[in-house]
Simulated scan of single mutants.
Amino acid sequence: MSNPESVIQAAPRIAVLVPCYNEEASIEAVVRDFKAALPTATIYVYDNNSKDRTSEIARAAGAVVRREPLQGKGHVVRRMFADIEADIYVMVDGDDTYHAPSAPALVARLLDEKLDMVNGARVTDWENYRAGHRLGNVMLTTLVTMVFGKRTDDLLSGYRVFSRRFVKSFPVLAGGFEIETELVVHALEMNMPLGEVETPYKDRAPGSVSKLSTFRDGFRILWMIGKLIKEERPLQSFGLVALVLALLSIIIAVPLFITYYQTGLVPRFPTAVLATGLGLLSFLSMTCGLILDTVTRGRREMKRLRYLDIAAPDFDSAFLKK
């Protein structure tokens, strides 16, 4: 594959992507504020089976409104990434908690430094951020940092800017709020150039209710992190299981060897079978890890080739100051 030569243009096509579910209290402000912050952008609102007037209000405010029937933010993001053609993608929630005037700074950072993703790290007063969400964000961000490396301070931010080559090379698999985790881990595993800009974060508008469940969605995100660790770090994952099984086998077998050394007999035959079985499972787990590590490397190479087949962002951010 050859990387097509990029052509510098004065102003890129910018799409603002707004996944929505029952956000009639805030969607008008979101569309209005982002139209003001990014006058050349097209605002896309994807209605995810709202039971209120979200679609009508968004359309009246000047947004392009589309519908995604599969429930869950991950399904909406998959549809948006597949359908919309643009050079720069700004993704933001429809709850009017993110700072629209920060959008030009995020876009400029992506263009000036030729990045593939810029994360809007939330800066907020404690009262604007539910304690359970805050604690969960810190814990999950720390876990991802320990495994995949530290490139962001706000794993679960819903405010991000992407290049076209990120969007069109990202195989969305998540169905719900765990999509943010998948986005970050994909970028880390592909060693993409990333950036982060601090942005103000405010409380929801009156009448707007959070759709994120602290415990249910928190466990779903944790489960997604576990699956990503297994899929992207199979040697470490299965190697850890192999180590635990090997240690259990040794602990169980040591008394048997002592008894055999003293008497020449193995009186606890079922225990000997258990120790042997655990040892075999340990070797089997390590073998699986080695094989899957090779498969993962091949998958990563194919994703990298697809990523390189799309031109890097090559625009001048001066149009943002006009």
Rank of each mutant, 00 (worst) to 15 (best):
H75Q: 15
H99I: 00
L140P: 03
M146T: 10
N48Q: 01
S102N: 06
A41C: 09
S55Q: 07
A103I: 03
A63W: 11
Y159D: 01
T54F: 04
A121S: 14
K150F: 14
T42M: 11
T152H: 00
T142S: 09
V92W: 04
P171I: 06
A100M: 07
D154P: 05
S169E: 03
D112Y: 00
F170G: 05
G72D: 06
N128Y: 09
G72W: 08
A105P: 00
P69N: 10
G72Q: 10
A131E: 11
E85T: 15
A103W: 03
D125V: 03
L70I: 10
F81P: 09
P69C: 12
S157M: 05
T42N: 05
T97Y: 00
E127H: 12
I57S: 12
P171E: 11
T142D: 02
R151S: 11
T97V: 15
L135M: 06
D153H: 09
T97Q: 14
N128F: 09
L143R: 01
D125K: 14
R122H: 14
L70E: 14
R134D: 12
D95I: 12
R130A: 11
S163W: 03
R130Q: 13
G149T: 05
S169R: 10
M80D: 11
D153S: 13
K51Y: 05
I57F: 07
H99S: 15
R134K: 13
G74E: 06
T124K: 14
F162E: 06
V64F: 09
R130K: 14
K73S: 05
N119F: 09
N137A: 05
N128G: 12
D87M: 04
V144A: 02
A108F: 02
G136W: 02
T42R: 11
V107G: 03
F166M: 12
D125Y: 05
G136Q: 11
Q71V: 14
L156Y: 01
R164E: 10
W126F: 08
F81C: 09
W126E: 15
L111S: 02
S102H: 12
D116V: 07
Q71T: 10
M146V: 00
S50N: 11
L155N: 04
L111P: 00
D93M: 02
L38F: 07
N119L: 02
M139W: 00
R79I: 04
Q71G: 07
R160A: 03
V138G: 01
D153N: 14
E56S: 15
D154K: 07
I84F: 01
G158L: 06
M91R: 08
Y46I: 04
P39D: 00
R160Q: 07
H75D: 10
D112W: 01
M139G: 02
R130T: 01
G62F: 08
V64N: 06
R130F: 01
D52V: 12
V77G: 04
V45L: 12
T142Y: 04
K51V: 10
H75M: 01
K114I: 07
G62T: 08
M139E: 04
V138Y: 08
R165Q: 15
G62Y: 09
